[in-house]
């Protein structure tokens, strides 16, 4: 079927309009990034016109919603660090072992079932994982650890780790299957067994790809919101004890969002300052991960 042909000038003009329109769509993402940066920068600037940077960096308490206000970011950073570290501690070993299984051991049939199942897991809303951490896992852990409080860093950290496993598995398997088969064959020819080949040849060669996956997982854990907002508590606390309630940066933003804080107040601005800190951390991690991934693709 030949396309209908309108007059030439209509066509040329129409083509130009369409191309501009499509470019306009593409620019939406650029404008989005710009808007995020402008909004975070402006509110952060306003915040620091009222609160000194040294208080933000050196005060050890975060209590903007109380009468006695303190604006030290460290308690929120500690909460975020604690839950993320627990999550990575769970996700990295299990995610990597699962990647080794998919890349080195699994038959094509098992792979064909396991890979889509793991993808499906990535689609479970984090809210659901949060419910699981609070209602199911915490009471279970309390049987073993009687000291464990109802809100804590341990349970959401573990659940977040399980949530991140599929991501590390998928990226790690990409890195492992990018290792040339000749290297494995060389190792076998030298008399190495499967274990030696995996640990001394395959994993070291895939290291930059694995590092990229790890950094991306850290970014994901730091930015994760609902699991920690539900199960970790709302008490900013400068501690590394996983058994007591803490508050992460993301959970603080949710806490203020749930309440009725009037716009334009100092309390309102705190969520943008915390958001800017969060954005800076995840952005740096994402850039680093992309750079590592590029290095492993170039090889």
């Amino acid at each position: 079927m030949a396309p209908r042909q309108p007059r030439r000038w209509v066509r040329r003009w129409g083509e130009a309009v369409i191309e501009r329109g499509l470019l306009g769509c593409a620019l939406v993402s650029v404008v989005t990034t710009a808007a995020i940066l402008v909004i975070l920068a402006r509110q952060t600037g306003e915040f620091f016109s009222e609160v000194s940077i040294s208080q933000f960096l050196f005060d050890s308490q975060w209590t903007p919603l109380f009468a006695d206000k303190h604006f030290g970011i460290w308690p929120l950073l500690a909460g975020t660090f604690l839950t993320s570290a627990i999550a990575i501690g769970v996700a990295l070993p299990f995610g990597l072992l699962a990647a080794v299984y998919l890349g080195e051991f699994a038959t094509p049939r098992v792979r064909a079932i396991l890979k889509p199942t793991l993808e499906l897991l990535a689609g479970v809303p984090t809210l659901v994982y949060g419910y699981f951490a609070l209602v199911t896992l915490t009471p279970l852990l309390q049987r073993v650890l009687p000291e464990l409080s109802g809100f804590n860093a341990l349970s959401p950290g573990i659940v977040m780790g399980v949530m991140i496993i599929p991501m590390i598995t998928s990226l790690g398997e990409d890195a492992i299957s990018a290792v040339p088969g000749a290297l494995r064959e060389g190792a076998y020819a030298l008399g190495a067994g499967k274990l030696q080949t995996v640990f001394r040849v395959v994993l070291p060669t895939a290291l930059s790809g694995i590092a990229a996956a790890l950094v991306l997982a850290v970014s994901r854990a730091v930015g994760e919101t609902m699991i920690v907002a539900i199960a970790a508590g709302q008490q900013p606390r400068l501690t590394l004890d996983p058994q007591v309630p803490v508050e992460t940066m993301t959970a603080y933003i949710v806490q203020v969002g749930m309440g009725d804080t009037p716009t334009g107040t100092l309390e309102y601005r705190t969520i943008f300052v915390v958001g800017a800190t969060l954005f800076a951390i995840t952005f740096a991690a994402n850039l680093l991960s992309q750079r590592l991934a590029r290095r492993f693709r170039e090889r």
């Binding site: 808007a35 995020i36 994760e224 919101t225 949710v254 995840t282 952005f283």
Partner: peptide, 21 residues
């Protein structure tokens, strides 16, 4: 580059964007 970076921005940051914008 923009699109791949946006894909990594935590969803709660989008909430802050929507709130202000």
């Amino acid at each position: 580059i923009n699109i791949s970076n946006l894909a990594g921005v935590p969803s709660i940051i989008y909430g802050l964007l929507g709130l202000e914008l």
